[in-house]
């Protein structure tokens, strides 16, 4: 259970947003102020998290913990980027190019690794999960969409086939809509629980 103060703060901020949104546009000013506060506090929370990350790795280096060489890499890259950014400014094209030249290939390669992992995982899916309505429909759907992704069928340009393809392509909408509504309801329940201090951050 939360402490009374945190409970009150959470409830007040939530109620302020709710009331402001329901009485909009008259409550627009209140909403704008509260949301600006949220943006600032969230940004500071992000900075705190970054500081905590760097401090943790510094601690690893000082203690010489296993893998501290990687911590050194992290801290050095952090300091270098920070120094360059402070020197040139965030909007400087060279600085942006430098950051982009590092982040882009790494993230792209990491996403590329996902393809490789999925490829090896594809064979295991049915062995691990067995046969069920869900796995069979999943497998059939995946195969059909892979075939559609190849583009051979579309390029045949047969009207009936194209209609069938459009129908098949629209099928995921049904499941996705059900999932969205289900997730929405769950999110709603969760939001109420957070609002009334039954769950979420700030628990003591």
């Amino acid at each position: 259970m939360k402490r009374p103060l945190t409970l009150i703060v959470g409830l007040l901020s939530g109620l302020a947003v709710l009331v402001a949104m329901f009485v909009a546009p008259r409550g627009g000013s209140v909403l704008a102020v509260v949301l600006n506060w949220v943006i600032v506090v969230a940004s500071v929370a992000l900075l705190v998290a970054i500081a905590s990350l760097v401090l943790t790795h510094l601690r690893f280096i000082v203690k010489g913990r296993k893998g501290f060489l990687l911590s050194i890499v992290l801290v050095l890259s952090f300091i270098a980027t920070l120094a360059l950014g402070l020197l040139l400014g965030v909007d400087d094209p060279f600085f942006l190019g430098f950051v982009g030249a590092i982040i882009r290939p790494i993230e792209t390669a990491l996403l590329g690794l996902v393809a490789l992992v999925m490829m090896s995982a594809a064979m295991k899916i049915f062995r691990e999960r067995g046969w069920s309505v869900l796995t069979v429909s999943f497998g059939v759907s995946a195969i059909i969409f892979l075939i559609l992704g190849l583009g051979f069928l579309q390029n045949l340009k047969i009207p009936v086939l194209n209609e069938a393809i459009r129908f098949v392509e629209a099928l995921p909408m049904i499941g996705a809509r059900g999932l969205l509504i289900g997730i929405g309801i769950g999110l709603l329940m969760m939001a109420f629980r957070v609002l009334f201090g039954m769950e979420g951050s700030g628990n003591d």
């Binding site: 899916i125 049915f126 892979l146």
Partner: peptide, 17 residues
């Protein structure tokens, strides 16, 4: 080619199972 290989892998997984 990538899509085809994935297709083959999925089918192989089904067949092996």
């Amino acid at each position: 080619v990538g899509l085809l290989l994935m297709l083959v892998m999925l089918l192989l997984g089904m067949i092996s199972k």
